[in-house]
């Protein structure tokens, strides 16, 4: 198992019309293998930028991200990605989507078939292998995306608002699935979300990020994700501890949004 280490990360986007955006400023943290980190913050706080740097899709202006001591310089299959939506290959059926990684690695067909069957069962899609992905509901599509990502057995899974496009009920169910996958596989997960409740419920560690410049504002160690599967999630989310944290985070983010608005009024 490999730890993820981020040190002194800076990201400055030069704008085409001059000027620049300071998307990340001096971001450093260590993430032990097997932890589930959620990133929360208003738009423009750099959380997706951070995720894309960890995925290797973006090179930082300065600073480094390492996984197990190895610097990240590009995308790699030890770091799986789950996107919000639209990243499935609609010209392939469910099984072909899930087996994409093993096929690219030229794994044996028999081995791949076993992996696909196992994963479809894990994400609750047994018997859906031959379906076209566009025939599935949004929630089922995200199950396929999770299974596809797990098929390569990555060290780290990076999720960019994976449940952002789902309705409230499906979203709650899928939160349960993510917790289950996390606990059963012991993978390291970084999950970006806009939802305070989701960040609290899923995050075994939580960063609240702030914009201008993008940075880690507060850090939390949370108890909810560890017990999330053994208790009723609705009850957990209605518990005083959970509500207290939720309100704290909400008001923090609310203040940030207010500041941004004020800032924009001042400059325009």
């Amino acid at each position: 198992m490999k730890n993820l280490s981020v040190s002194n990360l800076e990201m400055v986007y030069e704008l085409p019309k001059g000027g620049s955006v300071h998307a990340l400023s001096d971001v450093s943290f260590d993430l032990q293998a097997g932890r589930l980190l959620t990133l929360l913050g208003p738009s423009g706080c750099g959380k997706t930028t951070l995720l894309n740097i960890a995925a290797g899709f973006l090179a930082p202006t300065s600073g480094t991200v390492t996984l197990g001591g190895e610097p990240i310089t590009g995308p790699g299959q030890e770091r799986g990605m789950v996107f919000q939506q639209g990243a499935l290959f609609e010209w392939q059926n469910v099984s072909q989507n899930v087996s994409f990684g093993p096929r690219m690695n030229r794994k044996k067909k028999s081995e791949t078939a076993v992996i696909v069957e196992d994963l479809l069962a894990t994400v609750g899609l047994r018997g859906f292998g031959d379906k076209a992905v566009y025939e599935l509901s949004g929630g089922m599509q995200q199950r396929v995306a999770l299974a596809r990502c797990l098929a390569n057995d990555p060290e780290v899974i990076l999720m960019d608002e994976p449940l952002g496009a789902l309705d409230a009920l499906t979203r709650e169910k899928m939160q349960g699935l993510i917790l289950k996958l996390w606990q059963e596989t012991g993978k390291t997960i970084i999950l970006v979300t806009h939802s305070v409740e989701e960040a609290l419920f899923l995050g075994d560690r939580l960063f609240v990020m702030a914009p201008r410049p993008g940075r880690i504002e507060r850090e939390y160690e949370l108890p909810f994700a560890k017990v999330g599967l053994s208790v009723d999630p609705r009850e957990l989310k209605a518990s005083p501890e959970f509500i207290e944290k939720r309100e704290e985070l909400l008001s923090m983010i609310w203040d940030m949004e207010e500041q941004i608005m004020g800032h924009e009024d001042g400059t325009s």
Binding site: F57, P75, A87, F89, F100, G101, M104, R148
Partner: peptide, 22 residues
């Protein structure tokens, strides 16, 4: 879409495979 290409790279595809399969 960028996310399809990104997803394929993250799943271990090389440039040729991206061209052929995505």
């Amino acid at each position: 879409s960028g996310s399809k290409v990104h997803a394929a790279y993250s799943l271990g595809a090389n440039k040729w495979q991206i061209l052929r399969y995505v």
